[in-house]
């Protein structure tokens, strides 16, 4: 690990004050069109509907929730792979929510993504070295041939693979190794933020731990921040400093890891925790099983009032009509629930 990288990261850290990323009132709405020739908008899917959070340098924020909660859409909007309908995305002091393509190109050197599917996200016709080095070429920072090759070897070694693997093709690698290749590619441009969308959920259990550990080691070495999007609450707990729980396009609770897992406050967070079985049959036999009914409703027709109220075991009259705000509790936690108003 050459010193140039660490000093570069340090210099960047000092460059701006405040959080690395601040998302304010982010909305991503998709129109639902009807008609073949003459199209008419008949409805709107509010996939992300007013999401706000901050992420510090070197920090991991876990973004959890069930399918359709908007966690992946939030990640894609921050990377500007989707256009936000409203809101601010302040990254390294700069609001990138309305950046055009040219300006986003520069930003993407500092903000990279690791995908869920280690099979679909690597081009099968490219050698591993070229996959890892492609961002350097695209952004014109590859340098001469020797420098380029040295950087690829360094990146490949950084993720725990052997430099001579650069000459091989993705199909020669297992799922866990492919995910390492995807991580090496994300690291190529020295980003300060990596958005990880379900990065371990396609991997076998025994391999997940290898990749989770790699993420944590790289964070320590390179001072990376992660937005770690996942549905597995146990993995998220292990890797995150803070966690945001999403439901139907909104954050319902955001807190530090220990706050959230010790004392979840939002009934949805409580339900999620209760639903996750703990690998200990003696403990499971005595654990109260509070299983909530119903499924996540369609984002096309979110319920009025609190979006969780139809499934909430503690819903009151106010919950059916008034949409609760995400209220800061002053201790680093914010909850959107009338029970904690």
């Amino acid at each position: 690990m050459p010193d140039s990288l660490t000093t570069e990261a340090a210099a960047r850290a000092a460059a701006t004050d405040g959080p690395l990323l601040r998302v304010e009132g982010l909305k991503v709405h998709f129109p639902v069109m009807k008609g073949v020739v003459i199209q008419k908008q008949v409805a709107t899917v509010k996939a992300v509907d007013g999401v706000s959070f901050t992420l510090d340098r070197g920090e991991t924020l876990g973004l959890v929730g069930e399918s359709g909660c908007g966690k992946s859409t939030t990640g894609l909007a921050i990377l500007r792979m989707l256009t936000p309908t409203a809101g601010r995305i302040v990254f390294e002091g700069e609001d990138i929510a309305t950046h055009d393509k040219g300006r986003m190109r520069k930003v993407r050197r500092r903000m990279q993504m690791v995908y869920q599917d280690p099979y679909g996200s690597l081009d099968p016709r490219m050698k591993v070295g070229d996959i890892v080095g492609e961002p350097l070429v695209v952004h014109g920072v590859a340098g001469d041939r020797a420098a380029y090759r040295a950087r690829i070897a360094e990146l490949i070694r950084m993720v725990g693979l052997l430099p001579d693997m650069a000459e091989r093709y993705p199909h020669e690698f297992s799922g866990g190794q492919r995910q390492r290749i995807g991580i090496a590619r994300a690291l190529a441009l020295n980003p300060s933020l990596i958005i990880c969308d379900e990065p371990v959920s396609a991997l076998d259990v025994s391999i997940q731990a290898q990749v989770v550990n790699l993420f944590m080691e790289l964070q320590e070495r390179l001072g990376l921040a992660y937005l770690f999007i996942a549905h597995d609450l146990s993995v998220v707990r292990h890797i995150s400093n803070r966690i945001a729980v999403m439901y139907l396009g909104r954050i319902v609770e955001i807190a530090t890891r220990d706050q959230l897992y010790r004392e979840p406050m939002h009934p949805y967070t409580q339900a999620l925790m209760a639903a996750v079985p703990i690998p200990d049959p003696a403990l499971e036999a005595t654990r109260p099983q509070q299983i909530i009914s119903g499924e996540v409703p369609s984002a096309l027709r979110p319920p009025p009032g609190c979006r969780f109220h139809p499934r909430c075991p503690r819903a009151m009259d106010a919950c059916r009509t008034q949409d609760p705000d995400l209220r800061d509790r002053g201790d680093g936690r914010a909850v959107a629930c009338h029970l904690h108003g």
Binding site: A209, N213, S234, R237, H238, Y261, P279
Partner: peptide, 16 residues
């Protein structure tokens, strides 16, 4: 190797 909802958070997972 598996993280637990009630596990120790300070330590690294021990992968296979």
């Amino acid at each position: 190797s598996i993280p637990r909802l009630d596990g120790d958070t300070g330590s690294r997972l021990v992968p296979i």
